[in-house]
Design a binder for these strands. Structure first.
Length: 960
RNA sequence: GCCCAGAUGGUGGAAUUGGUAGACACGAGGGACUUAAAAUCCCUUGGCCAGUGAUGGCCGUACGGGUUCGAUUCCCGUUCCGGGCACCA
């Protein structure tokens, strides 16, 4: 009886031994090179871990194990992003404290993760919601509050330096309130009166990346613009560094591109415009070359200039327009691009041409970008063009050959003309007037910038689209701010008193007076004298003051967690100098690309700030980034006839396409049928288990199911993101139970390239399971005894082995795990055919497979090395073995079969010595008997021979 | 609209980056062992055509062109799917 591959026992055994032996515990070791592997830590949701989560974790675990086998000291930690909206909303619904549900979810995650056999050092686990962790989130916030960004040095500096500067300049106010306001304009964490994304349904403000298509990312509720006093982070100050840093890191082009878009650098010029009333304003343009084509100016409706510029005659019209704009939601403005606007009554004077052009107010100009005012060049900007057509304003073409009768010419290519149209159209400054005619657009831009600068008409300016991050939320389940208010002026709670712990509340909703949930806390006031938190009722504005009621957003805790993993139990510092110097930054970061404009920007910003402080040792936190694809789920739908409790099999429905809504609708005998999610566990293939769904929810209990001719109920299926609400979540637990963790790990990697998204499909998992069984059976004879012997491996054995080492090594380096698993499959078949029992080979294979399938690797490693005396105790685990090097000498081929081509078509195959030179190859090929019939009546034009690749002979008919 | 990435058998996907397209796996078909099933093993499997047969020929990497002795790979154009940004001046 051959020995069975009992994965359940093997995996249980090794989970136990790994824990007992602390196999994965990591400590700083100056004698070894470090390698830091990191996964984006999960938010522990109530749905548990699904098969998509481990995809990235497995990928990084393979790399971590591989690097470790190569002798590096690998840090591979895991933790939880534990603050979040779902737990809070669940608390509002059920009254259960978010901490309770969050910790329960964490336990469940841990249990699931443990089954898969990761090499995490759990001693370093962090949870963002525990005080010993968020102490350092609060600490970093205070550091940001007490810093400003020095434009010249391009780095953060202590705020005291700025105060000194103001004092030296004599601009330092004496009034405390004025001082506070002045510094607020410079602090990196500041309290700002800004337009925010307010989500009434969630009762909180949202950051820009949390708003998608004008609705909230979570829940899809409408979002409106509202002016509110909020904590903000001056992320925009770091725009240039965030952009420059991208060049130094090894991330995918697409994600760098996304970040570049989000930062949105544009180089241009700011030009001073005087108005007919003697006022002036500044416009920003990237197309300085088009100054001669300006026919009007436009102000953003929210701009403060509007009020100043508007003439009495136009006042009523402008007010009405602004009222209209205010009434529009963000979403409406995004979808509806119809041209609107109003004349302000005033005129602006083009400093280049001296022309008087009307100033309009229109919503297509945004207050938040540039100066909130533009010069309009309808001929060369499509938005200005639409506006000009609508209001019948002149259009002056400035590029040779550009036809602007139907649409604007926006391209930045061509030769400039009409600039000026005639000599008297260009105003002279210090005797010089601007002339761009005949230049290319690029030259014209540069020339205009020079002119504007030289004659002080404006200045060259770089603008960024990146906005400051709104850093406060009106929620309960988040980090409290270590801030109290003294006469309305924010004060930092002393650093030694941190952390300020999240107070207990009995209600998680806003208070009746509209305060955020923390307003419900009774013990939430700061006693300045005794330096402690006291009852709110004691507030006296003398020595006891109210504490901030806002909490920090989700990204606060996730922005520097990778630093905390380096030194997670340190209560003196976020991370010790020693640990930070050793681990530096993350070498390999694995996570989803959906964080491109959120976490991955905030984290880089946060790290750059800490780098300026000297806490972080590298300017960029994540050297290499791999974005694992999403594993999607198959959602299943049943169709309910509208206003009935009847469900109709999908194949009986008629489809109708609604062009307007770009959606299909389904009908059954004239009645429309609406799709309803059905849990995937009730579906096999596309057939619904009607009995099972009746037991699922009350909705289906007494429903009538109209079946097809085969007596089956067919569901329709769609590939969607895995989510609890879509009832399409597949847990990894079942796979572990039926096939084992090693098979799960192998299969998830075998599905395809890591970066690709793909629907989950268990078809094919048998292939990986079979492979492991074959791998297992290499080691055991028919009686279940280990069949390794000390026989000399054959040349064939060594060739197969070294081919495998070479392939697997290079594939892991390139994260091409699916192809390295294929290589294993090939190799195992070869060894099996070779009946290889050589210890040399059998001892190496477990090391090679260990990153992918650690449990079976350990078991076989133990079996094959069991008879030996250990050189050191660490060799008890395959994790501490040494990754083998391949040797070229075993891979050398003595002869190679190559196709001999005539004019690019393969005509015959023949054997060549592997070391044949191209000349020898041609000689052999042309003199071969098979070649003669192809050469008959032909002459050789050219020959190409590439050793080990191809022999190509180009011929053409002989001409006399 | 702009930017980025992609399209290969029935399916997931390989292809040393310009050198015999379809590795590996799934599925399907056939066979062996077995009372039977499971498990295991072997063979076939891109399409079309010719041949009893070994085999041979043609077509084939979304579509249309180009460069090249040779193109899945490079260039130009088109179509389709995915991702990001979107009145950003």
């Amino acid at each position: 009886m051959a020995k069975e591959y009992n994965f359940r026992e093997i995996e249980k055994k090794w989970h136990r031994l790994w824990t007992e032996r602390q196999t994965y515990k990591v400590t700083e070791d100056e004698n070894r090179k470090k390698f830091y592997v990191l996964n984006m830590f999960p938010y522990p949701s109530g749905a548990g871990l699904h098969v998509g989560h481990p995809l990235g974790y497995i990928a990084s675990d393979i790399f971590a194990r591989y690097k470790r086998l190569q002798g590096l000291n690998v840090l591979n930690p895991m933790g939880y992003d534990a603050y979040g909206l779902p737990a809070e909303q669940y608390a509002i619904k059920t009254g259960q404290h978010p901490e309770k549900t969050t910790f329960a979810n964490i336990d469940r995650y841990r249990e699931q993760l443990d089954k898969i056999g990761f090499s995490f050092d759990w001693d370093r686990e962090v949870r963002t919601c525990t005080p010993d962790y968020y102490k350092w989130t609060q600490w970093a916030f205070q550091k940001m509050y007490n810093s400003y960004f020095d434009e010249e040095l391009q780095k953060a500096q202590p705020i005291e330096k700025l105060i000194e500067k103001f004092k030296a300049e004599g601009t330092w106010p004496s009034d405390e309130k004025e001082q506070s306001e002045l510094l607020m304009e410079h602090r990196i964490a500041y309290l700002g009166e800004t337009m925010v994304n307010w989500c009434p349904a969630l009762g909180t403000v949202l950051a820009n990346d949390e708003v998608v298509n004008g609705v909230s990312e979570r829940g899809g509720y409408p979002v409106e613009q509202k002016k509110m006093r909020q904590w903000c982070l001056r992320v925009s100050a770091y725009s240039q560094r965030l952009l420059d840093g991208l060049e130094t890191i090894d991330w995918s082009e697409s994600i760098k591109e996304t970040q570049k878009n989000w930062i949105g650098r544009s180089e241009g010029a700011e030009v001073e415009i005087k108005t007919s009333e003697g006022l002036s304003f500044t416009i920003f343009t990237t197309r300085a070359d088009t100054m001669f084509g300006v026919t009007f100016f436009v102000l953003a409706p929210e701009s403060e200039l509007v009020d100043k510029v508007t003439t009495p005659e136009q006042r009523a019209a402008v007010d009405e327009y602004i009222k209209y704009v205010k009434g529009r939601t963000e979403r409406e403005r995004m979808i509806d691009h119809t041209v609107t606007g109003v004349f302000s009554g005033a005129y602006g004077i083009n400093p280049i041409t001296g022309d008087k052009c009307p100033i309009y107010v229109a919503e297509y100009v945004l207050a938040g970008y540039g100066t909130g005012a533009i010069m309009a060049v309808p001929a060369h900007d499509s938005r200005d063009y639409a506006f000009a057509k609508h209001f019948n304003l002149p259009i002056i073409p400035l590029v040779e050959g550009a036809d602007v009768s139907q649409e604007s010419y926006d391209a930045k290519e061509g030769i400039v003309m009409n600039s000026p149209a005639s000599e008297d159209k260009s105003v002279k400054y210090d005797g010089e007037s601007l002339c761009l005619n005949g230049l290319t657009i690029k030259e014209a831009i540069a020339e205009t910038k020079r002119f504007v600068k030289a004659h002080k008409l404006g200045r060259v300016k770089v603008n960024y689209r990146l906005r400051d991050a709104i850093f406060s939320r009106q929620r309960y389940w988040g980090e409290p701010f270590p801030v109290y208010y003294k006469k309305g002026i924010p004060q930092m709670i002393p650093e030694e008193c941190l952390p300020i712990e999240l107070p207990q509340v009995d209600k998680f909703l806003p208070t009746e007076t509209g305060e955020p949930p923390l307003g419900n806390a009774t013990k939430w006031a700061w006693d300045e004298k005794n330096r402690k938190i006291v009852e709110k009722s004691l507030i006296n504005e003398v020595n006891v003051f109210p504490i901030e009621l806002y909490t920090m957003p989700g990204f606060a805790g996730s922005s520097a967690y990778y630093l905390r993993y380096m030194d997670p139990h340190n209560d003196k510092a976020l991370v010790s100098e020693k640990a930070a110097s050793y681990w530096q930054n993350v070498d390999l970061y694995v996570g989803g690309s959906e964080h491109a404009t959120g976490h991955l920007i905030y984290s880089r910003f946060w790290n750059k700030f800490l780098f300026d402080l000297g806490v972080s040792k590298k300017d960029e936190p994540f050297q290499k980034l791999i974005n694992q694809g999403m594993i999607q789920g198959w959602s299943s739908f049943v169709y309910r006839l509208r206003n009935t409790n009847k469900f109709v099999s999908f194949d009986l429905l008629e489809e109708q396409y609604d062009d307007a809504k770009k959606k299909s609708f389904y009908y059954y005998q004239g009645t429309e049928a609406d799709p309803v999610y059905a849990d995937i566990s009730m579906v096999s293939g596309n057939v619904l288990n009607v009995e099972k769904i009746r037991e699922w929810t009350a909705e289906f209990r007494d429903a009538e199911f109209i079946l097809n001719a085969n007596g089956q109920y067919i569901v329709s299926q769609a590939i969607e993101k895995m989510s609890k609400s879509k009832y399409n979540v597949v847990n990894p637990d079942d796979i572990c139970e039926n096939y084992g963790a090693d098979t799960l790990r192998l299969y998830e990697m075998f599905l395809g390239p890591i970066e690709q998204s793909k629907p989950w499909d268990v078809a094919g998992i048998d292939g990986c399971f079979r492979f492991l069984k074959k791998f297992w059976s290499l080691y055991w004879d028919r009686d279940g005894n280990l069949q390794a012997d000390d026989s000399e491996p054959t040349a064939e054995n060594m060739k197969s082995l070294h081919k495998l080492i070479k392939k697997v090594t290079s594939d892991i380096e390139e994260f091409s795990y699916n192809t390295s698993i294929s290589a294993f499959m090939v190799a195992v078949n070869e060894f099996s055919q070779q009946k290889c029992t050589s210890r040399t080979v059998l001892q190496t294979l477990p090391i090679l497979i260990a990153p992918f399938a650690p449990h079976i690797a350990e078991e076989l490693w133990e079996a094959i090395s069991g008879g030996q005396t250990w050189q050191s105790s660490r060799q008890q685990s395959v994790c501490d073995a040494q990754w083998p090097q391949y040797e070229e000498k075993y891979l050398v081929e003595t002869s190679v079969k190559l196709g001999v081509q005539f004019n690019g078509k393969v005509r015959f195959d023949m054997l060549f010595p592997a070391d044949a030179t191209p000349d020898q190859m041609v000689e052999m090929a042309t003199s071969a008997p098979e070649a003669q019939k192809h050469l008959e009546g032909m002459q050789i034009v050219k020959t190409i021979a590439i050793p080990k690749r191809i022999v190509n002979i180009v011929v053409k008919p002989k001409t006399e």
